[in-house]
């Protein structure tokens, strides 16, 4: 009897101090689920999270959840309640690319957008003492003469850089072998030591040692991306028309919450993220990581993301083309 009353008392006290309906949102730690492991993307998300945390007055932690090309993080987020305490860091791969590749059954419109976060451009680079070619067009010519001989890395297989690079190679009818690497810096290292012929390079890795790799082609037509890679030639300057522009060939993320999240909580989060993304200090930190802070708020979400989806959909066959062509060469 005595025992039970003590326990009941403790429970009552607990409910009193944490009854979710009574208190003002947010009242406890919010989690943002990132579809990547430790690396630059984690740092960028932590910068934004820290700034939002100051706005909201509660901690906002980033949970690095790699696995299955980002699907694990999305699933994890979708399995949490729609109470505004879980943010899904909507990177393009799980948000748009995986549904196109039929690996995920959601649509980008199944989520409520908060604000766009950051984008990062990719480029193709090879080692500085390369003697077989000195420009991208020359490398493509070499590749056409030696089908199946070129070895490159896009990081993981079937990721966004792979799709874009396969599309570029397809438009030149060059058959090359992608060698998957979990860590992009490791792939870059193997390019430098001559094991690979070329690899995708992101701005952060390029900036750490601009002398180590020659940037042959920036995979974005945007002037800012070209500038970030030291003015290297971009896809706007090559002969082939790839039909990709804007955010489509880049990595980017848009912070999202689950459908059914209460509207007032969504507004609170949107306001906090909007402020964070406009903070000059936050922008400067993101830019130092080699990422570009994005200005779009939730009103632009459908337009921007559907544009990317439409472009990526037209490219979806490039990876399949590469696989078939490789088998034919062998």
């Amino acid at each position: 009897m005595k025992l039970r009353s003590i326990f009941a008392g403790a429970l009552l006290a607990l409910t009193a101090i944490s009854g979710p309906a009574l208190a003002e949102y947010p009242e406890r730690t919010i989690e943002s689920i990132l579809p990547a492991g430790a690396g630059p993307a984690l740092s960028v998300s932590q910068i934004i999270a820290e700034a939002m945390s100051k706005e909201l007055g509660v901690p906002l932690t980033v949970l690095a959840t790699p696995g299955a090309g980002g699907i694990k993080a999305f699933q994890t987020g979708l399995n949490k309640p729609a109470d505004g305490y879980t943010i899904i860091d909507g990177y393009v791969a799980p948000l748009v690319l995986q549904p196109i590749l039929k690996k995920a059954d959601w649509n980008f419109e199944d989520f409520i957008p908060l604000h766009a976060a950051a984008s990062n451009a990719f480029a193709i680079g090879w080692r500085t003492d390369e003697t077989r070619w000195s420009s991208f067009e020359e490398m493509m010519a070499w590749g056409r003469e030696n089908p199946g001989k070129l070895r490159y890395s896009s990081g993981q297989r079937n990721n966004l850089p792979h799709l874009v690079m396969a599309r570029v190679l397809q438009s030149y009818q060059v058959v090359a072998q992608n060698v998957p690497y979990k860590s992009p810096p490791a792939a870059n290292n193997d390019v430098k030591s001559g094991i690979l012929d070329f690899a995708f390079v992101n701005v952060g890795n390029y900036k750490q040692d601009p002398e180590a790799l020659k940037i042959g082609l920036v995979l974005s037509e945007q002037p800012a991306a070209k500038a970030a890679f030291g003015g290297a030639p971009s896809i706007a300057e090559i002969d082939a028309d790839l039909g990709i522009s804007g955010l489509a060939p880049m990595g980017w993320d848009w912070w999202l919450v689950k459908k059914d999240t209460p509207a007032d909580r969504v507004e609170t989060l949107r306001a906090a993220m909007g402020k964070a993304m406009n903070d000059p200090d936050v922008r400067a930190k993101i830019e130092r990581m080699g990422f570009v802070p994005l200005d779009w708020d939730h009103t632009n979400y459908v337009e921007i993301v559907s544009g990317v989806r439409d472009q990526l959909s037209t490219m979806a066959d490039a990876i399949k083309w590469e696989e078939d062509a490789l088998k034919a060469v062998k």
Binding site: G37, A38, P40, L42, S43, Q46, R288
Partner: peptide, 9 residues
């Protein structure tokens, strides 16, 4: 890898 992230920030 996280330390590198901190340095870059």
């Amino acid at each position: 890898a996280v330390l590198i992230g901190a340095l870059l920030i």
